[in-house]
C-alpha cells in the first residue's frame, strides 16, 4: 500500500516538467498516446518509447526511480504481450496451438508490438503525473480548461478524504482481528470492510457538503480564485514535444512500412 500512502509527496523533482501546469501534462499525455493507440506496430511504439526515455532522462528521471514508479506497467506490458501471442489474429506459419490459442508469425509480431506499446503509452503518463498536486490540477481544470467549478471543486474536496479512508481501512482491519474473525474468510472480511468504508465515506461526504455550502459554495454567484492557474511558454513547449513525438512515431512506422491501424 506504499504507493497509496506516499502519493505525490515524496516524488523526486524534475527539470522543466515541474514548471508545467498539470492540465498541460494531461493534454500532452493524451496528445502523445492517442495516435499510438490507433496502430499496432513495433516501430511506432519503439520510436516513441526511445524518445520518451531520452527526454525523461534529460529531465532528471533515474532508472531506479523509473522502476519504483512504473512497476505496474512493467508487469502489465509482457502480460498484454502473452495474451496477444496466444489469441492475436493468426497469420503466417503456425508454431503451436491449443483450443483457441494459436502462436503464429503474425501473433508473435503483434505480441511484440503490443508489449512495446503498453510501455510507450504508460510511461509518459506515470512520469508526468508523478508530482501532480490535486489542488493544482483542479485549479487548472477549472481556470484554464473552464470546466464547471462546482464539479471540479466538489471532486477535489471529496478526493482529499482519501487519507481518512486509508486510516479507516487500517483500523477496520485491526478490529476484524479483535472480533475473532481475522483467521479465515478473506473475501467475506473484505466485503464487510468495503461496506463499512462506503457508509463512513458517504456520511463524511454529506457533512463535508454541508460545510462547503455554509461557505457559500454552489451558489450561482460568480466566484473568484485565490490562486491563479496560468499557462506559459513552457506549457506550449511540452505540447509541441508531445505532438512531435507522435508525428515522429507514426512517421517512422509509415517510412518503415510497418504502420498497422488497429481496425485493419
Amino acid at each position: 500500500m506504499s504507493a497509496v500512502a506516499s502519493g505525490a509527496v515524496d516524488a523526486p523533482r524534475l527539470r522543466f516538467i515541474d514548471r508545467v501546469n498539470p492540465v498541460t501534462k494531461l493534454a500532452a499525455a493524451m496528445l502523445l498516446t492517442a495516435p499510438l493507440l490507433l496502430t499496432v506496430d513495433w516501430v511506432s511504439a519503439a520510436t516513441a518509447l526511445v524518445i520518451e526515455l531520452v527526454l525523461f532522462m534529460a529531465a532528471g528521471v533515474r532508472p531506479r526511480m523509473l522502476v519504483r514508479r512504473a512497476w505496474p506497467i512493467l508487469i502489465a506490458a509482457p502480460i498484454a504481450g502473452i495474451s496477444m501471442l496466444l489469441y492475436g489474429r493468426p497469420s503466417g506459419e503456425e508454431y503451436w496451438s491449443f483450443w483457441l490459442a494459436r502462436i503464429t508469425d503474425g501473433s508473435i509480431e503483434l505480441a511484440i508490438a503490443v508489449t512495446v506499446r503498453v510501455l510507450a503509452v504508460g510511461l509518459p503518463a506515470v512520469l508526468l503525473f508523478m508530482r501532480v498536486d490535486p489542488t493544482e490540477l483542479a485549479d487548472g481544470l477549472a481556470q484554464v480548461w473552464r470546466l464547471p467549478s462546482r464539479f471540479v471543486l466538489g471532486a477535489l474536496a471529496g478526493a482529499r478524504l482519501v487519507g481518512l479512508f486509508i486510516e479507516d481501512w487500517h483500523a477496520m482491519a485491526l478490529s476484524r482481528r479483535a472480533r475473532g474473525i481475522g483467521d479465515t474468510g478473506v473475501v467475506r472480511r473484505f466485503a464487510t470492510m468495503a461496506f463499512a468504508l462506503l457508509v463512513l465515506a458517504i456520511r463524511r461526504g454529506s457533512k463535508l457538503a454541508t460545510a462547503m455550502e455554509a461557505r457559500g459554495f454552489g451558489s450561482d454567484r460568480p466566484r473568484t480564485w485565490a490562486r491563479a492557474s496560468t499557462i506559459g511558454w513552457s506549457d506550449w513547449v511540452l505540447i509541441a514535444i508531445a505532438f512531435a513525438i507522435a508525428v515522429a512515431a507514426i512517421g517512422a512506422a509509415i517510412a518503415a512500412g510497418t504502420f498497422h491501424p488497429v481496425w485493419s
Binding site: 498536486d133 490535486p134 489542488t135 477535489l156 474536496a157 482529499r160 478524504l161 481518512l164 456520511r203 463524511r204 457533512k207 463535508l208 454541508t210 460545510a211 462547503m212 455554509a214 461557505r215
Partner: peptide, 15 residues
C-alpha cells in the same frame, strides 16, 4: 453567517 460543525475531519475542505 459562518457555521462550524462537530467533526474536525469532515470540514477541512482543501489541502
Amino acid at each position: 453567517s459562518g457555521l462550524v460543525l462537530q467533526d474536525p475531519d469532515s470540514q477541512v475542505i482543501l489541502a
